[in-house]
């Protein structure tokens, strides 16, 4: 299909056009980038909610219920679910949809699975761009389920407005060890599988460890108990999430997050362009006795970029 036809279908709200545009962006194709550039200002600024937590805690099962609730509140719900690619084969088994089948045929809902494709932060490199495509489609909310993460895969915080960290009763014992990672990024915590022993204790434990970290001026971080098998307490999770959203918006925190997100994107684009523009000079470099610094200076001269003496001396 020609890009111009695709863009027309996209504009008219065709589901298959959204799906194809996501593919173009996920594959880093030229047309995909073209689309992102053309549509940046036409996007809806969707509320982006990240769902993260260790493998198997019930993230997808919870999403299944959240999708149902949000489809009642919002007109358009986008879902991105990421599973890991194998570093050996490059293949991926994308199984999140297995649990997200309640709302598959709802007009307001669009679900897309992505493979992490070598990215180690719990997302795929394309996730930000895929979210932007969904925003261009007019999603009111975008739910993003990360790869089941351990500790250091915390990229989700950087591309979302709010993060839900999902744990299970058994997580209580390992929270101390987790404190350098997951515990820092949650706007809301969930203890799922509350049908299992120890869920109340886990909630208390999480509350206590969160209270040590919180500055006195900050809002208390909610901890909610759920059972995704039986749809228990999901409504209270949803209302807490809605409150959190309002708080983030009214306190200016959401704006802050979005600004730093944009800043990071600018940096990434520049870094990428810069590397690409010096690449050919590096490849064509002659094998002389010049020192690495001298060579770098020479290449910089060719790019026309002005690096002050001060920066050089700091390097």
């Amino acid at each position: 299909m020609k890009y111009s036809d695709l863009a027309i279908d996209f504009k008219s709200g065709k589901r298959s056009a959204l799906a194809r545009m996501i593919t173009l962006v996920d594959n880093e194709e030229r047309d995909g980038f073209e689309f992102l550039k053309d549509n940046y200002h036409k996007r809806k600024e969707s509320f982006r909610l990240g769902i993260t937590g260790p493998p198997g805690v019930g993230k997808s099962s919870l999403m299944n219920h959240l999708i149902e609730r949000y489809a009642q509140i919002y007109a358009k719900v986008g879902v991105i679910a990421i599973d890991p690619s194998s570093p050996f084969t490059g293949g991926a088994l994308l199984g999140d949809r297995l649990r997200m089948n309640k709302m598959y045929d709802h007009e307001n809902v669009f679900v897309r699975s992505l493979a992490s494709r070598g990215s180690l932060g719990g997302l795929s490199t394309s996730t930000e761009n895929v979210a932007q495509v969904m925003e261009s489609f007019g999603m009111d909310i975008i739910l993003i389920e990360t790869v089941g993460v351990g500790q250091s895969e915390l990229d989700v915080m950087e591309i979302t407005d709010a993060v839900v960290v999902v744990l299970v009763p058994e997580s209580g014992d390992s929270i101390q060890a987790m404190k350098a990672g997951l515990m820092e990024i949650g706007d809301v915590f969930v203890v799922n599988k509350s049908d299992r022993d120890g869920s109340d204790r886990a909630v208390e434990f999480i509350k206590t460890s969160l209270s040590f970290k919180k500055a006195a001026s900050e809002k208390t971080i909610p901890v909610v108990k759920t059972n995704a098998l039986n749809d228990e307490n999901i409504d209270s999770l949803v209302s807490i999430l809605e409150e959190t959203k309002s708080y983030l918006a009214s306190s200016g925190k959401m704006k802050e997050k979005r600004e730093s997100r944009k800043e990071k994107e600018v940096k990434e684009i520049l870094r990428d362009l810069f590397i690409k523009s010096i690449d050919k000079h590096i490849k064509n470099m002659e094998n002389t006795d010049a020192s690495p610094y001298e060579k770098a200076k020479e290449i910089l001269k060719k790019t026309g970029l002005n690096v002050t003496e001060e920066l050089w001396t700091k390097r």
Binding site: A19, R20, I22, S86, T89, A92, L93, Y104, D105
Partner: peptide, 30 residues
Amino acid sequence: SALADAGMEVIYTGLHQTPEKIVRTAVEED
């Protein structure tokens, strides 16, 4: 899993899939 091992990205949706559900998923997942 075999197709994933062969380097493909496999969307696995499990049991009880109706033709409507299958096609809807195929479209969304492109």
